[in-house]
Each structure stands twice: as structure tokens, then as C-alpha cells.
């Protein structure tokens, strides 16, 4: 079973070497790596050339890049990885094992844990650990080719929440399983101001997603997983305080972003 990894990039040189290196170091014997870049100016394509089987320029944004990668890939399974993720060496082997063991499963979730520099990155790490196993938050990354073709790929109208959208549509047509190896997600150094700005930008797109999925979107924003294990939060009171600050900043950004979107729609 050939496993194709598709990585969309845009000025990601900081984290890219570790990401692509971890894909090339998979213990699985038949792995293909495609990097779809979107006009990077920081040496990303040159770096990608050193590792990838194919590097191509495509746009205008992430969903289109991923679809392009899936189209160019030749594997039986397509896995979508972001440039700030580092894969444990067994991920591809685990994907094959899960798909072989359950022929009815069309897509797989790969659990994530985060790492990074500084206090807020540790708060984020705690948050991500609480989400592990929560279907409202986790999205599948590995797809059988037939399933991906049936889904028609990623929705190129969406730039944020496109992973939830795809997860929702996947759940309607097939079963989603999960693998036992991890993705390590590089959060870098988290800064509140930058987090706020990013969420405000995403907020505009989230608004659109909510209108498209009026029925099921509520549980995604409630993030009930955060409160389902109060014991795990109480065990780390300082990190929890940091996490509350982080989530409050994000919520403020999202609310403002949604307001921006509505204001733009009215005018």
C-alpha cells in the first residue's frame, strides 16, 4: 500500500525541515511526499526540493493546494500534513495496518500533541491533550483515495474550518478510525497578540462555515472536552490559568472576526 503525504506550504521554512525529514524517515517502505507551495519567498521551495518527490507551485490557498497535491499523488492513501507537524516514524505503517484491519474504514484520525517554546506553549499542550479522542475537535488526515474522490476533496471556498467541513462530510459516507502513532504539532512561541489577530482573521471564515453547517457546528465551539475532565485541569492550576487567558484571547478574536464578517455582509 503506497502512502502519499501532501504538505501545503507558504513561507514555512522555520518548521519545514523537521516536518519533511520526519516523513522521509518513516519506517514504511512505500512513502511518497508532495509539497505544494504557494509563492513562498523564504527559501521554502529550495528546502522542499531536498526532501520531496515532487514540489509544485499552486494557489490561491490551502484547500486548493491540498486538492492539487491529492490530484498529483499516486498513493492508495492520501495523508494531509501541515508544515508545522512532525510525524513519529510509525505513522505510515500504522495507517496501513489500520486500513488493512478494517476495510470499512475510509479515513483515519492521527492524534496530535503540541510542543513549543515558553509558558503558553505548555498551556496549549495541556489543551491539546484534553482534545485527544474528542470527535468534535479531531479531524481525519488520512483518506483512502476512493473516499477522497467521492468527497470531491477539500472545499476551496473555505480557508478556516475547512478540516471540520471535510470531517463532517467524511462522517456522512464512511467510518472514521484512528491510528496509534502521534503527530507532534510545533506551536513555536505563542504570542497573545498574534493569536488574537489570527483568530480574528479566521473568525470571518468561521462565520461562513457556521451558516453552511447550522445543525452541527455548535458543539465545535463549545469545546466541552475542556471541561469534561476537570481533574486534569485542577492538577495543573498554573497552566490552567494560562490556558483560560489564551482561550479568552482567542474567543475575543473570533467574536470580533465574526462581527467583521457580518458588518462586511451588511454593507
Amino acid at each position: 500500500m503506497r502512502i502519499s503525504f501532501v504538505v501545503p506550504t507558504r513561507n514555512n521554512a522555520r518548521t519545514l525541515a523537521a516536518c519533511l525529514g520526519s516523513i522521509k524517515a518513516q519506517t514504511h517502505p512505500d512513502v511518497e511526499l508532495l509539497v505544494i507551495d504557494n509563492g513562498s519567498a523564504d527559501g521554502t521551495p529550495e528546502l522542499a526540493e531536498r526532501f520531496a518527490d515532487k514540489v509544485e507551485q499552486f494557489g490561491p490557498e490551502r484547500s486548493a493546494q491540498r486538492n492539487r497535491g491529492a490530484y498529483l499523488s499516486t498513493g492508495d492513501v492520501v495523508v494531509f500534513i501541515d508544515s508545522d507537524m512532525v510525524l513519529e516514524p510509525h505513522v505510515a505503517t500504522e495507517i496501513e495496518r489500520q486500513f488493512a484491519a478494517a476495510p470499512g474504514t475510509g479515513a483515519l484520525v492521527i492524534p496530535e500533541r503540541s510542543f513549543g517554546e515558553g509558558f503558553l506553549a505548555r498551556c496549549r499542550q495541556l489543551e491539546k491533550m484534553l482534545y485527544v479522542g474528542d470527535p468534535a475537535v479531531e479531524s481525519p488526515r488520512a483518506f483512502r483515495r476512493a473516499v477522497l474522490d467521492e468527497l470531491g476533496g477539500w472545499d476551496e471556498q473555505l480557508t478556516a474550518a475547512e478540516d471540520w467541513d471535510l470531517a463532517d462530510r467524511t462522517r456522512e459516507i464512511t467510518t472514521i478510525g484512528r491510528v496509534g502513532a502521534w503527530i507532534w504539532h510545533d506551536e513555536g512561541r505563542i504570542q497573545l497578540r498574534a493569536t488574537f489577530a489570527k483568530k480574528r482573521y479566521y473568525g470571518r471564515w468561521i462565520d461562513q462555515y457556521v451558516r453552511m453547517h447550522a445543525d452541527s457546528s455548535g458543539d465545535k465551539f463549545a469545546r466541552t472536552a475542556l471541561l469534561r475532565h476537570p481533574g486534569r485541569l485542577l492538577r495543573h492550576p498554573v497552566l490552567t490559568a494560562g490556558l483560560v487567558t489564551l482561550k479568552a484571547t482567542e474567543a475575543a478574536g473570533l467574536v470580533l472576526g465574526i462581527r467583521d464578517s457580518r458588518a462586511a455582509a451588511r454593507s
Binding site: A17, A18, G21, S22, T27, E88, P89, F115, D186
Partner: peptide, 29 residues
């Protein structure tokens, strides 16, 4: 990062937990 990639080695997130994961997965092979 530079010398490890040049030498064909593997880099991991800078934490002991990550290094332990990679050791246990790669060393037997």
C-alpha cells in the same frame, strides 16, 4: 539540524518525551 540532515539522521521535537518515542520506534529496526 544541519549536520543531522547532512549525515542522514533524524531530528525530533526538542523534548525528552519525543526523543524517547523516536528511540523506541527506530532502534529495534
Amino acid at each position: 539540524r544541519d549536520s543531522t540532515f547532512a549525515a542522514g539522521g533524524v531530528v525530533v521535537p526538542p523534548s525528552p518525551e519525543a526523543m524517547a518515542h523516536w528511540i523506541t520506534e527506530l532502534l529495534p529496526g
